[in-house]
Design a protein around this nucleic acid. Sequence first.
DNA 1: AGACATGTTGCTCA
DNA 2: ATGAGCAACATGTC
Length: 297
Amino acid sequence: MPELAEVEFFRRRWQEAVPPSTVLRMLVHERARPLRGVDPAALHRAIVGSRLVSSEAAAKQMAFHFSGGAWLGLHLGMSGELRVAAADYVPGRHDHLVLFTSRRALVYTDPRMFGRIQFQAPPPASLAARELRRGESRADARRFGPQAPEWWTKIAPPILGPEFTVAAVAAFLKRRARAPLKAVLLMQERFPGIGNWMADEILWRAALHPRRPAGSLRPAEAQALWRECRQVCRLALRVMGGNGGPLPPSHNALIPNTWLFPHRWEAGGRCPRTGVALRRATIGGRTTCWSPARQKP
DNA sequence: AGACATGTTGCTCA
DNA sequence: ATGAGCAACATGTC
C-alpha cells in the first residue's frame, strides 16, 4: 500500500502514540514472511525493556530507534499498516509485530506479507560508553554513527534532498534509455519512495507518456520530470501532514481535483485538466493510467 | 469465479 | 557485463 507520504504518516502514528514509555511485552509472528532473516530472540532481548526514543522515514522504509541503541526497520510492502491500539489489544491473524507499553499497543499488520521487518542489535555497552565520552549524544550516534545498519544507509538519497538534481535524473534516464518512463520511475535506486500511483501522477503532471523510452527525453522534458517528482513528493507529504490520513485519497476530501489520483480508478474516469477519458494499460509490469490528451507517445 | 491490488526480487534472455 | 521483462511471493476484495 504505502508510498513515500503514507510511510511518513504511519511512522508518525506510532511515534506520537507513545511518550517514551517502556516496552513491557512484545509479540512476534515468528514464522511469517516479514520477519525473514531476523532472529526473534535477539529482537525480543533488545526491544523489551527499552523505550522508543525516535524514528525516521526514508523512501518506503521506517527506522525506529530504541534506548540502548537497537534499530527496528519496517517496510510495509503492498498491504502493510501501522496502527495504535489499547494496551489490552489481542493480536489478529495478520499482525506480525505488536509492542505493548503500559498504555498502548503498537501494531504492525500486513495481510499480503510483502513487507519486511529488519533489525540491528544494540552496540556493546563499552562502545556506547566510548561514544558518550567523545561527546556525541546517543541520538546522534544512532542516526549518523558508524553503527547505522546497512539496510538503512543503502537507501538512495531523498528526492527532496540536494542530491536529487536534474543532472542525476538525466544521467539515469540515459542509462535506462530503452525502458519505458513508467518502469524507470519505479526504480528505487534513483526515485526512492515513488510507487505506482505517484509515478502516474508525476507523468501526468509532466505531460509525458508512460511508454516513452527514458532515453528519448529532450532536456526540457527531463527537467519537467525532475520538477514534478519533487512537486508530487512535496504535495503528498503536505496532504498527509495536514491530517490527510493514509490514502486512497479518492476518499480523501483534502486531495483537490487538480490531481490525477482521485480519478485513477474511477470507472469512466476523466482527466481533470482536459476532460478526456483516461486510458489504462499494463506498462512496466504495473497498471498505468494516463490522459491521452496530455501525454502523447 | 476470476481479475486485480499503493512492492520487491530473482531468474531468463538479449 | 548490463539491462529489460516477467513470474513469484500470499491474501483479500470487488
